[in-house]
């Protein structure tokens, strides 16, 4: 098999038109980190279990390690880098900081993206819903309780701002 040709992909990342060249075998996660320098998304398990690489793809949370870069032609992508509005942190980010909802921090970008997605859907999500919807994000440090409380607090902030 000869070396695969690179694919040219045009996409929107965090609101900006972006294009890149990648090999067909490169995951969206590899493209984001290695080609585009967006190193906020982390590689944890690289097989779809841990959620550290979670990004929004056309409005849905996905594991970017399980998406090929070549697949995102014409898609809209939001990464953890796009959550804050200039220098103002998003309520989810504020509450993770204030509630010390992290220790080593590797899982945090994925949790932030997934948490914002679930609160955008329902800022009043119950603890049970939060735990169910975040089951695709693993954290080996915190024991999850502080994360769940931070998400609940962020939901309250988001609900009062609207």
């Amino acid at each position: 098999m000869p070396a695969s040709k690179k694919v040219h992909v045009t996409t929107t990342i965090n609101g900006e038109d972006t294009d890149f060249l990648c090999e067909p075998r490169h995951s969206l996660l590899e493209v984001l980190r290695d080609n585009l320098g967006l190193t906020g998304s982390k590689e944890g398990c690289n097989n779809g279990n841990c959620g550290a690489c979670t990004v929004m793809l056309n409005g849905r949370p996905v594991d970017s390690c399980l998406v090929l870069g070549a697949e995102v032609e014409g898609a809209e992508i939001e990464t953890v880098e796009g959550i804050a509005c200039s220098s103002n942190l998003h309520p989810v980010q504020e509450c993770f900081l204030e509630g010390a909802a992290l220790q080593c921090g590797i899982c945090t970008p994925g949790f932030l993206v997934a948490s914002k997605a679930l609160l955008d859907k329902d800022p009043h999500a119950s603890e049970e819903t939060i735990r169910f919807d975040l089951s695709g994000n693993l954290c080996r440090c915190t024991g999850y309780d502080k994360i769940v409380r931070a998400v609940q607090a962020a939901g309250q902030k988001m609900a009062t701002k609207v």
Binding site: G48, G51, T54, L57, R60, P61, V62, D63, L66, V67, A114, A117, L118, D133, L134, S135, G136, N137
Partner: peptide, 9 residues
Amino acid sequence: IGGWQIQSR
């Protein structure tokens, strides 16, 4: 089937 991220795809 899997978590939310998996169900999106």
